[in-house]
Design a protein around this nucleic acid. Structure first.
Length: 426
RNA sequence: GGUGAGGUGGGUGAGUGGCUGAAACCACCGGUUUGCUAAACCGACGUACUCUUAACGGGGUACCGCGGGUUCGAAUCCCGCCCUCACCGCCA
């Protein structure tokens, strides 16, 4: 959620920024309305506080009068206070309504894009900042099979069994498929540790406060599985529990950056998805992912973003996959992000680019709701910047590895994984 | 699932209706003393909102799990909810 004071102090910049997200000129009225409502909030607040101060003062006097036995004067004062309290009640109602009204508007505003983000309609306007095709496969003498065929042929993933025990979108990994999956998780976690991230194994179910603080609620309620009986949500990404570990904290500047990494399965309902997008591992309801999170000093958060982008790129290079990096345009960026780089790998048999990572700086958009702040010495606490990225999403990486490394006899495993899988071929 | 106890500041913990934003102790921070360290002593030590000030700062309000209620006045009394702990049962 946007911070109202920042919004007030930078109205023009906020408006310009939000227009890059395809919001029309009416956004100017929205911002003006927020400021006007907030002005009213302040006025009411001040008035209310003054009345409450009066009540407190008189109440103390009543106490004194009682002690000195002046009952009738106390009674007079009492009736005065009762009158004031009636007015107080009204003001409290007005204040609560005004605050609610402001929040209702602000909560629907997406994050203000970073300066470097270009306006754009959607995915077609994203800018490819880098493309590395040196590991593009050449299938000589074979017809390349899509990964779902390879998975069946070599008994790696059983989609039908998944349907039997759960439903579509819940693949069963088995044999070397399961080992490859485990090896990839292990590899990603090792690399994260190497890069200085603390490894975390968080709960996979979270409560409502947690889902709200990172912005899944109310925005993406329909995307999450919900356990009604216990009021818990299955996490759609490790970002949710990892970032919430620090909810409400006031850190010292010297404690920044906080670097966390975690492997979790991710659960997504993917309501409304259909077609070739959901075939095989391209889009499933449960998939594995290693996520990296950083909580950073606002002064350095864009360096941190670069560092995280470099980390993800390094992983893809080690896996010997063709990839490209996209800087998302305003129209394609997530609601909470200020700047996002997407990573796609080329899955050569499908002849498709698959998104395997999204690395974002949320600036204070998340920390505002998380109430996650830092302090330098005895300064006032201020909001931190939060960042996260997938490093990496497993299912699609698996798809690309299988498709790109196939030959007539099987599938070659990237060298860097051999020590994790225990085999070099499927 | 059953029964009981309890949720107070970074921590321990006092406080059962009135100058209590909250004792005391510990931790943290600043200082004094001191070959160094430790100890001792002194001081500061919450957050949010808001008003005021050029600024340093000062004033007000709210917050003792959360939400309501009673009262002139609530950490303290009442109601609802949430959570934690202990014991029993079940169990990886």
């Amino acid at each position: 959620m946007l911070d109202i004071n920042t919004l007030r102090n930078n109205q023009a910049a906020v408006i310009d920024g939000l227009k890059k997200r395809n919001l029309g000129p009416e956004i100017e009225d929205v911002i003006a309305k927020i400021v006007k409502l907030d002005d009213r909030r302040k006025t009411v607040q001040t008035e209310l506080d003054q009345q409450l101060a009066l009540v407190n003062l008189k109440s103390r006097e009543i106490g004194e009068l009682f002690k000195s036995g002046q009952q009738d004067q106390a009674a007079t004062l009492k009736s005065e206070v009762v009158e004031i309290k009636k007015a107080v009640k009204d003001m409290e109602t007005t204040l609560a309504q005004t605050i609610l009204e402001i929040e209702t508007i602000v909560i629907d505003l997406p994050n203000v894009p970073h300066n470097s983000v270009k306006a754009g309609k959607g995915a077609e306007d994203n800018e490819i900042t880098k493309e590395n095709l040196e590991n593009m496969p050449r299938f000589e003498g074979i017809t390349a099979l899509p990964h779902w065929d390879l998975a069946e042929k070599y008994n790696l993933i059983d989609f039908k069994l998944g349907v039997k025990i759960t439903g579509s979108g819940f693949p069963v990994f088995r044999g070397k498929g399961a080992k490859l999956e485990r090896g990839l998780i292990h590899f990603f976690l090792s690399e994260a540790s190497e890069a200085g991230y603390e490894e975390i194994m968080p709960p996979l179910l979270v409560n409502e406060d947690t889902a709200r603080a990172t912005g899944q609620l109310p925005d993406k309620e329909g995307q999450m599985y919900f356990v009604e009986k216990d009021n818990l949500y299955l996490i759609p990404t490790a970002e949710v529990p990892l970032t919430n570990l620090l909810r409400g904290d006031i850190l010292k500047r010297s404690e920044l950056p906080v670097k966390l990494a975690g492997y979790t399965p991710c659960f997504r309902r993917e309501a409304g998805s259909y077609g070739s997008d959901v075939k095989g591992l391209n889009r499933v309801h449960q998939f594995d992912k290693v996520e990296i999170v950083q909580v950073a000093d606002p002064a350095h958060s864009y360096q941190v973003l670069d560092e995280m982008v470099a980390h993800v790129e390094m992983l893809l290079q080690k896996l010997e996959l063709p990839y490209r990096i996209l800087r998302l345009c305003g129209g394609d960026m997530g609601f909470t992000s200020a700047l996002t780089f997407d990573f796609e790998v080329y899955s050569a048999a499908q002849e498709k680019w698959l998104e395997v990572s999204s690395v974002s700086n949320f600036e204070t958009f998340q920390s505002n709701r998380l109430k996650l702040r830092f302090r330098d010495g005895d300064e006032k606490p201020q909001l931190v910047h939060t960042l996260n990225g997938s490093a990496l999403a497993l299912a699609r990486i698996m798809a690309a590895i299988l498709e790109n490394n196939q030959d007539a006899e099987g599938v070659k495993i990237p060298r860097v994984l051999h020590s994790f899988t225990g085999f070099d071929r499927i």
